[in-house]
């Protein structure tokens, strides 16, 4: 049970003056239950990549396997795949259209051909999963705040019952609180429902906090793939690509250069805080000479 991409290449506008490589020989496998972060600056090919995973785009060459089956092979139903590999786009405004929130969430499961009763149950469950209060269910989706719209959009995909959830910058344009709420909900889905998550993000901090694994795209190629710690070790190369490691990485490296015996592989603010406190506590009693 996994998604596997082999030699994935995509060229936009092949044979015209607009010809452009969007993906160049990308290979990876995402096993079940992993929380993967995908990072890259604008135009690095990450949006193109995720649209291949549920068959919205067809690769120029290369193959995508879902549970070992070629998704563009004969007799493979792309509609069923889209129920299993849920893709939430960046702007909820692109998908909300119904008169009320509940009806909008019903759209996905209804397209998959469930009975009306099942559709309602799935919609109810999905809305509860993303933590939408019942009082909003009858409201027009256009009257909601940005964060709530995004939740409804995620619920609209969750209602189809996906095993893999791909989110394209789900926190863009949200305030810090809205961002944390959405990301916590996504982590809940991963931890409690065992869903495989692929999170596209600009924020290294978010990825460091939530993801088990990090893939970095640059100019259509996958340049790094590993745990966030491993990837952040290459923070100088990341900078050259116009990306940056989390601020904590800079802090720990700076401390190390000044001779502080701190673990360089910390990635989140909380870890760094604990490590610094651990370093400071015994020293308060002992040495007085060092000034850091």
């Amino acid at each position: 049970m996994s998604i596997r991409a082999e030699h994935l290449t995509h060229i936009y506008g092949q044979g015209t003056a607009f010809e452009q490589y969007a993906l160049k020989d990308v290979n990876f496998e995402i096993p079940d239950g992993q929380f993967v972060g995908l990072i890259g600056h604008t135009g690095s090919g990450k949006s193109t990549l995720i649209q291949h995973l549920n068959g919205l785009l067809k690769p120029t060459s290369g193959t995508i396997y879902y549970n070992g089956e070629d998704i563009h092979g004969e007799g493979f139903s792309l509609k069923r795949l889209r129920g299993k590999v849920g893709l939430v786009f960046q702007y909820p405004e692109h998908q909300l259209f119904e008169t009320d929130v509940f009806a909008d969430v019903c759209f996905g499961p209804r397209n998959l051909g469930f009975t009306e009763k099942e559709v309602w149950e799935r919609a109810k469950e999905a809305l509860e999963l993303v933590g939408m209060d019942r009082k909003y269910w009858e409201q027009s989706p256009f009257e909601l705040s940005g964060g709530q719209k995004r939740r409804v959009a995620i619920a609209g995909v969750l209602a189809m019952g996906p095993e893999v959830l791909i989110l394209d910058e789900p926190t863009a344009g949200l305030d810090p609180r809205g961002r944390d709420e959405i990301l916590d909900k996504i982590r809940d889905l991963h931890d409690r429902k065992g869903m495989t998550i692929l999170l596209v993000s600009h924020s290294m901090e978010d990825i460091a906090r939530y993801a088990d694994r990090l893939m970095v795209m640059n100019h259509g190629e996958k340049v790094f793939d590993g745990t966030p710690r491993e990837v952040f070790e290459h923070y100088r190369e990341l900078e050259a690509m116009g990306l940056a490691a989390p601020q904590v990485t800079y802090l720990t490296h700076a401390l190390k250069e000044h001779g502080v015996p701190i673990d360089e592989e910390l990635t989140t603010v909380e870890e760094a805080r604990d490590a610094i406190v651990r370093l400071l506590k015994p020293e308060q009693a002992g040495s007085t000479g060092r000034q850091a």
Binding site: R82, G83, G86, F89, Q95, L112
Partner: peptide, 16 residues
């Protein structure tokens, strides 16, 4: 472009 994006977003929800 917008139409393309909306179509994809709805196709991702099983629209035909």
């Amino acid at each position: 472009e917008e139409t393309d994006k909306i179509m994809k977003a709805q196709m991702a929800r099983g629209a035909d």
